[in-house]
């Protein structure tokens, strides 16, 4: 067995013995099940109401019926975006941090690196082992969601919808991978493991909450409830005249939002789940091709951090010290 595979296998078995990981995983699965069951049930209620109306109209001898409501069974996964943003990211950060820090604290890092394994191979094993775990978690939650939607909501779900759902969970996996790599990078960079975890959490707060909030706050129309421009009594033409003078401001505001992988995850997720209107007619792959910038916004930071982790891990002399 190659050294990398040995590390991968150990990483998976270690995570399954990590109490903190298991607690967060339990919470995530529980919330997923509850939200998807509730969401599916809501879809079922809407569908049942519509069917009842149709039956009533038929009993009155009517032959023309109102169009079926747009049920969107995929929307039952909407809350999952929030749970992944919160718990999924936390899970990944804990995994990433623990994977390096535990080796330092147990003194085994010296034993490993004095063996026939390159540092980059060791790091690859850590990342890949944990990615396999995260993939398994998102796969299980996607199956739970699909089964709940089909069984509970009884809403018609097409093969296109199923592909969309799985692609959405793939995006969730990419999002968590970013935080995993961030956790590993900071654990490699910062000698103190607790400090590394704290800084990882701070970065997560900035990325997931502060940057999107800054973006929203800087959006002029969000300054007042009901919309700034509407509250000022401005019509659309007047609104446009104002916005015309703020192009640079708008670009800056958007730039701040673009720095947040959470925002990218939300955008591509909502497009795939048909929560954001305008993508109903597109296939799942078309949605991804339209939203490629958001997919790249999830992938690129992970790749960049991974390369930086290589360089830091290669160079650091005091990597063994905690």
């Amino acid at each position: 067995m190659s050294p990398m595979l040995v590390v991968i296998k150990k990483e998976i078995t270690d995570a399954l013995k990590n109490k903190l990981f298991l607690i967060i995983l339990g919470m995530l699965l529980l919330l997923t099940i509850v939200s998807v069951v509730l969401g599916s049930y809501q879809v079922k209620v809407s569908l049942d109401s519509y069917n009842q109306s149709i039956s009533f109209l038929k009993s009155l001898g009517k032959t023309t019926f109102p169009a079926a409501p747009n049920l969107n069974p995929l929307s039952s996964s909407k809350s999952f975006v929030n749970y992944i943003g919160l718990l999924g990211a936390l899970l990944a950060m804990v995994l990433g941090n623990a994977s390096v820090v535990k080796e330092k604290r147990s003194g085994t890092l010296k034993l490993i690196l004095s063996r026939q394994i390159f540092r980059d191979t060791f790091l690859n094993g850590k990342v890949i082992g944990n990615m396999i775990l995260l993939f398994a978690i998102t796969f299980v939650t996607s199956i739970i969601t699909l089964v709940s939607v089909v069984v509970i909501s009884s809403a018609p779900i097409s093969s296109g919808d199923i592909v969309r759902m799985f692609l959405f969970f793939l995006m969730s996996f990419l999002y968590m991978t970013f935080f995993l790599v961030l956790g590993i990078f900071l654990a490699v960079l910062i000698p103190n493991g607790n400090k590394a975890l704290l800084i990882t959490v701070i970065i997560w707060l900035v990325i997931s909450f502060i940057l999107p909030q800054i973006g929203d706050t800087m959006d002029m129309d969000n300054q007042l409830p009901g919309g700034f421009f509407s509250s000022m009594g401005m019509n659309k033409a007047d609104t446009q005249k104002v916005l015309d003078h703020f192009k640079f401001y708008e670009t800056t505001r958007d730039g701040i939002e673009q720095m947040s992988p959470t925002k990218h995850y939300e955008r591509v997720g909502f497009a795939l789940l048909n929560i954001k209107p305008g993508f109903e007619q597109n296939t799942a792959l078309e949605v991804l091709s339209i939203k490629w910038i958001d997919v790249l916004g999830l992938l690129a930071p992970s790749i960049i951090l991974w390369l930086l982790a290589y360089m830091v891990f290669l160079k650091r002399e005091n990597i063994y010290q905690e």
């Binding site: 067995m1 050294p3 040995v6 590390v7 150990k10 013995k17 604290r105 147990s106 003194g107 085994t108 010296k110 034993l111 490993i112 063996r115 026939q116 394994i117």
Partner: peptide
């Protein structure tokens, strides 16, 4: 090394299996 702790949650055999495979 000095003061090596190894993997406390694993048995002696499991620890040695891991390091043996790495070697």
């Amino acid at each position: 090394p000095e003061n090596v702790m190894l993997y406390g949650d694993l048995t002696a055999r499991e620890n040695l299996q891991f390091f043996g495979k790495l070697s």
